[in-house]
């Protein structure tokens, strides 16, 4: 397992998983919002991170509500 942080909360995921899996483990409702385009994932600097992106230990992700 590796540890990534979603909105500051530690989430454990197998190393072969991607950003969307980390969001799913964080909160299924948020995952469904991500899938439906209601929110998106960013990095610490506010840049969007694709849900299919690879994870690495210590990665920090943030969930942001989409403008529309």
């Amino acid at each position: 397992m590796i540890t990534v942080y979603v909105d500051g909360r530690a989430v454990q995921v197998p190393p072969s998983m991607t950003v969307r899996h980390a969001i799913l483990r964080y909160d299924q409702k948020v995952y469904e919002m991500l899938r439906d385009g209601i929110c998106y994932v960013t990095d610490d600097a506010g840049s969007e991170v694709d849900p299919e992106g690879a994870l690495f230990n210590g990665m920090r992700l943030f969930v942001t509500e989409a403008a529309n």
Partner: peptide, 14 residues
């Protein structure tokens, strides 16, 4: 190989 950049500009990860 991946990585990430923080607000302060530093880069971490593989």
């Amino acid at each position: 190989e991946g990585g990430q950049q923080k607000k302060d500009g530093t880069i971490d990860g593989p």
